[in-house]
Amino acid sequence: MGISIANAALRLVSGAFILNSGINKLRIDEASAAGLQQLASNGVPQLGQLEPAAFGKAVSVSEIALGSALLLPIIPSRLAGLGLGAFSGVLLASYLRTPGMTESDGIRPTSDGTALAKDAWLAGIAVALIFGRRSAKLAKKKK
């Protein structure tokens, strides 16, 4: 029931990236938090109801917790993947619902949207973590 090298690589890359992002947001100023909140509330409107400072702190703590869960091998890959899936879902919803981030087709990023569109890789990692072990076990059984 150990962790595979593939899962370890996925968890290490995404976990370190997210943990670093959360640590960098620990001392986010209110204006930056408000801008981040505006962007996030495009994807999840309820986030706009928080005070910007509280939102900034919540994002920081959430990213630190998620990054740590991805880096800790005692957390099952499927559980870490579910957390990453929720996180990347909010990021992608914000990207898709923010005016000016996508081309007229609603999917491809504009130059302004590239910074958010790149977070699609987090969704891909989440899917691999959630379903990867099951696929490997099914392939073994077929042999």
Rank of each mutant, 00 (worst) to 15 (best):
I28M: 07
S32N: 11
L39Y: 14
L50D: 11
S77M: 03
A33N: 06
I18K: 05
E63K: 07
S68C: 04
A31K: 15
I28V: 04
L36A: 15
N20T: 10
S60M: 10
Q46T: 05
N20V: 02
I23L: 15
V59G: 02
S14K: 01
P45K: 04
F17H: 15
S41M: 01
I28F: 00
A65T: 09
S77P: 05
L36E: 15
L72A: 14
A58R: 13
A34I: 03
S32P: 02
S21F: 15
G43D: 02
Q37P: 10
E51A: 12
A16R: 03
Q46V: 09
L50T: 06
I74T: 11
A31I: 14
L66N: 12
P73A: 08
E63F: 06
V59D: 01
G15L: 09
Q46I: 08
I28Y: 00
G48R: 05
Q46Y: 09
L39W: 15
S60G: 11
I28C: 00
S14C: 08
Q49S: 11
A69N: 07
A33M: 11
A54I: 04
Q49A: 10
L19A: 15
N20E: 05
L36N: 15
E30T: 13
V61N: 06
Q37F: 13
V44E: 07
A33P: 11
I23Q: 11
Q49D: 07
G43Q: 01
L70P: 11
A69H: 03
